[in-house]
């Protein structure tokens, strides 16, 4: 079964075509990377996937649902980590996890999620007092507290130190092993290479290529995902 099917997705803001005919599919249980520079259409694509935006044209199916019409039903099965979103300054870590847990029909025990993500020592700390890395870790834990079938992570490890980054990779590995579908939006090539089964390269609102890292490297005759990306990005210009 396909977890995500996007066909010819288009979205403009005024005269700017943010997404201009994007098509890709993600299989259930797959870890799928979306890579591209700023303004390539990554965030708009993600926002259409999770039902925050309605596409101008094209079809989007996520876990068999149309996110624009069935956002709330889908939200029970979806975990989301948004780029630079935040929480009220004075809310404490444990309170945030407990509150988010109460939003979902089939939530995990929030205490266990707190434990698993190493947030226990921070339980009584206010969001406003957390470091960038700690915030990121909390936002990830909040994406998972609803026990989702699929997670969409935008800029997964931005702001994390190298150790926290590796730790996050390990936890994403656990999710994969548990069969959760993961969509990872990133501009870190090492992260995509380490975690993703397949990648879509976005450039100027279109998909320049889709495939495994190996396929993209072979197709472009380059030596790494980064070089393959630059070749695809340039070829599309």
């Amino acid at each position: 079964m396909e977890a995500i099917e996007v066909t010819d997705l288009r979205k403009s803001y005024g005269d700017t075509r943010a997404v201009d005919g994007v098509t890709f599919t993600v299989r259930a249980g797959e870890t799928f990377g979306i890579i591209g520079h700023n303004g390539a259409g990554k965030t708009t694509t993600v926002e259409c996937l999770i039902g925050l935006r309605r596409a101008d044209a094209g079809t989007v199916r996520v876990l068999g649902e149309d996110p624009a019409r069935r956002r709330r039903a889908l939200a029970h099965r979806l975990g989301v980590q948004l780029q630079d979103s935040s929480l009220p300054e004075r809310i404490k870590v444990a309170e945030a996890l407990r509150m988010f847990g109460a939003f979902y029909r089939d939530a995990s025990d929030w205490r266990r999620v707190m434990e698993r993500w190493g947030l226990r020592p921070l339980a009584r700390k206010a969001f406003g007092d957390l470091s960038g890395g700690q915030r990121q870790r909390l936002m990830l834990a909040l994406a998972l507290v609803g026990n989702p079938e699929m997670v969409v992570l935008d800029e997964l490890t931005t702001g994390l130190d190298p150790i926290a980054r590796r730790e996050t990779w390990r936890l994403i590995g656990d999710l994969k092993a548990a069969g959760t579908t993961v969509v990872l939006v990133s501009h870190y090539f090492d992260e995509i290479e380490a975690l993703c089964d397949r990648v879509a390269v976005l450039a100027r609102g279109r998909v320049a290529a889709t495939g495994t890292t190996g396929e993209l490297v072979a197709r472009t005759g380059t030596a790494s995902l980064e070089e393959a990306y630059l070749a695809l990005e340039g070829a599309d210009r």
């Binding site: 925050l52 709330r72 039903a73 939200a75």
Partner: peptide, 17 residues
């Protein structure tokens, strides 16, 4: 401030209205 700091947006991705 909830709107500016994207707290509303984060909540909009959960099942709550």
């Amino acid at each position: 401030s909830y709107r500016e700091r994207k707290v509303l947006k984060r909540l909009a991705t959960t099942p709550i209205s």
